[in-house]
């Protein structure tokens, strides 16, 4: 695994193309991506060309691209939106749902219409309910660091050497599995209950409570207790939990991987 530290040199010439597609979200996901500050310039300088993105790129028609980052859920009463995600799927090699709304509906799960100026827009579904999504990056907002890690790994998956591809594949596997799982697009505090605690897997570490953006989780007698009325269905708790998914073989290389992520972002 020596390669982790030497990596990038020599493969930077093959940039990937990347787009940001904005469905029904609050632009917080895009803001989170930008919160990588210099990091985002490094990504755009060395690894990716941004070919589509509302407010960022002056392109009207969705182009072909390697990686599409979709933010927001999709309103099924809005034909433009349902057509658009379909087109994105057709034109992209990898579709990544970023943020709670795109992955699991998040706050848009509470919408039931009536807002001006489109009161009939009342039904919002996560992107993976309409098209195949390859990778999930849940949470509201997704963190700059998670977006950075996933972008770098996706780049390595597409352009890396064999060893880098293998590493990136290992890293992305659980986020790919999540995109296809029966519970990924339904995530809420209940998912943590049903898939971890109800299955006898919880060991009380508190990662879920730390991950929750609305402090809906407290630890009572060593186990998470959810205030379900506060839960916004962002999916962060479940994905953060070491007992939702954990790859011992990959995690053993945590030091090299963190080192690589740092080096790549220089």
């Amino acid at each position: 695994m020596e390669i982790f530290t030497e990596h990038v040199n020599g493969i930077m010439i093959h940039k990937i193309t990347i787009g940001h597609i904005h469905e029904s979200g609050c632009t917080g996901c895009l803001a989170a991506l930008m919160d990588n500050y210099q990091g985002i310039f490094t990504i755009l300088d060395k690894y990716a060309d941004l070919v589509y993105g509302l407010t960022l790129v002056d392109v009207r028609k969705i182009p072909k691209m390697d990686v599409a980052l979709i933010e927001g859920s999709v309103c099924i009463q809005d034909k433009l939106a349902t057509d658009e995600v379909r087109e994105v799927r057709d034109k992209s090699s990898v579709v990544i749902a970023i943020g709670g709304c795109a992955c699991s509906g998040n706050i848009t799960r509470f919408d039931r219409g009536g807002q001006q100026n489109q009161p009939q827009h009342e039904s919002f579904v996560p992107v993976s309910d309409l098209i195949d999504v390859d990778i999930f990056v849940p949470a509201c907002a997704p963190t700059p660091e998670a977006l950075r890690n996933v972008c770098v790994m996706t780049y390595l998956l597409l352009r890396g050497n064999d060893e880098q591809k293998a590493l990136a594949g290992m890293y992305l596997k659980p986020l790919m599995d999540l995109a296809r799982s029966p519970y990924g697009s339904k995530a809420s505090f209940n998912t943590l209950m049903q898939e971890v605690i109800n299955l006898g897997l919880c060991m009380g570490c508190g990662s879920c409570a730390a991950a929750c953006p609305v402090r809906a989780i407290t630890m009572e007698y060593g186990k998470p207790q959810g205030l379900r009325d506060l839960c916004v269905n962002c999916g962060a708790c479940f994905s953060q939990c070491p007992r939702s998914f954990f790859d011992h073989e990959l995690m053993e290389h945590h030091e090299q991987i963190m080192g690589m992520l740092k080096a790549v972002m220089q």
Binding site: P142, T143, A146, P174, C205, A210, P213, H254
Partner: peptide, 24 residues
């Protein structure tokens, strides 16, 4: 921490899904 908690810490670094500002 005990081992499972350290797993939580390393997961927070590699998969910082809800761990803004933590990994670094």
């Amino acid at each position: 921490g005990v081992p499972c908690q350290i797993q939580g810490v390393r997961k927070a670094q590699l998969y910082p899904i809800g761990m803004r500002g933590v990994p670094d």
